[in-house]
Design a protein around this nucleic acid. Structure first.
Lengths: 226, 226
DNA sequence: CGGTTATTTGACGGGTATCAAACACCGTGG
DNA sequence: CCACGGTGTTTGATACCCGTCAAATAACCG
């Protein structure tokens, strides 16, 4: 069942905020809330795509699985984000596997209804296009990272992103497991751990999942040095 | 000036093939053909986005440039492909730099007109969404490659993709410089060269830019071995 | 033919993965 | 309250892949 908080989230996200309340209600009917336990799969790659999803609680990991069992994490979506928009236009199949990182609640949005909505109100298409453009940008940034940053630099950039600041001291907590973060950054957990350890010299302290950065600006300077 | 061949290309590409001839004509007016010399830049990252482009001759490289001068090649577009669709929805700025790999001819398509077109005929939005979804898929595949394949495996996959076959012997020519291919694959030219050299043991012969593969199927088996 | 640009090859060092083990953290149950 | 197993994290030793630098060779073009 949808809470009022869920609805508030729906009204904020890029994809849905442009809709009239009535249209939004029609897209999200009562039966479309999905609960997932930790590590439970929502869909797997190659499966027919019937819907896209809005995260209202928890985190969802999208990844590609290689035949030998190893996985490449493409992205992790958090509360207020939508994902799998593109699937309905890619031969109707999901190109990735979606798994709950933590216990999660999702709102599913029917592809067919969204399609009708676009036809009825073309402005909706712009919201959809904007949402996909955002994802494209994220992926491009990720490719750039992988291709020309070292593991240490990627770790730094991750911390800077998380801090949400460009200068001064910062304190925040990691969004999930260090192992999962390492995967997102395209490195092994051991390597990520070592990278963090070295950053202690530059004003990064950790206790559990709590991170304290003495001076975000100084940490950022490190990126250009090496 | 547009040739009839250019128009034929426009009618084939994912983005434009759904349009009525009259609408297509309106999008592509006579003044919108652009010629680029080899290595000439079309736009650079951060620049305001006024149009998207269809390649009718040559090849266009999209890349991200780091402050220190190094570049990460995101993709190379060939004849019949459109690019920069997403820019008009990303704050109106190009997130990458576009450069001609060879002498090229492009048709530019005004963002404003395309926007009008979508509003007038919502079906157009689906073509646009499909086109962007394709790009998303490409990027996801690329991230997967970088994260879990070795350089040798990436080289092999590139050759297999280029051959367009899944079994038997193949012969084709490389689409461009080996150095550029290496960049696309996220490795240095030297490394790519060595990877190709080793593949000689497995039935891959090269003379200039001509590639001959004895048995595509056997080459593909190598991917799973290592 | 000469000069420029690609490509190859070699030697070397560093960064990262791998394997393995120790350690910290946490909820459970005795 | 403490023992306990499971999970996540750290640390260490080692190997190897790949990037770097440098030079030789090959291909290309006017």
């Amino acid at each position: 069942m949808l809470t009022s908080n869920d609805l508030a989230l729906a009204r904020q996200c890029t994809l849905l905020k442009a809709l009239d309340p009535a249209d939004l209600d029609h897209l999200i009917d009562a039966g479309s809330v999905i609960r997932l336990a930790r590590n439970q799969q929502l869909f797997s790659q190659g499966e027919p795509a019937k819907a896209l999803f809005l995260v209202v609680e928890g985190q969802i990991k999208l990844s590609r699985l290689a035949p030998d069992g190893s996985e490449a994490v493409v992205h992790v979506f958090g509360v207020g984000e939508t994902f799998a928009e593109a699937a309905m236009f890619m031969g109707g199949r999901y190109p990735v596997t979606a798994t709950a990182v933590t216990e999660s609640r999702l709102v599913s949005i029917s592809n067919a209804r969204l399609r009708d909505q676009i036809l009825a109100k073309p402005e909706t298409a712009f919201a959809m296009l904007a949402s996909m453009a955002q994802h494209l940008k994220l992926l491009v940034a990720q490719i750039e990272q992988m291709k020309l940053l070292t593991t240490r630099q990627r770790a730094i950039r991750f911390l800077l992103d998380q801090s949400g600041q460009t200068e001064g001291p910062a304190r925040f907590s990691l969004p999930h497991d260090k192992a999962l973060i390492a995967h997102r950054l395209g490195m092994k957990p051991e390597t990520f751990s070592r990278a963090l350890a070295e950053l202690a010299k530059h004003g990064v302290r950790m206790s559990g999942s709590q991170v304290t950065i003495e001076d975000v600006g100084r940490l950022g300077d490190l990126l250009s040095v090496e």
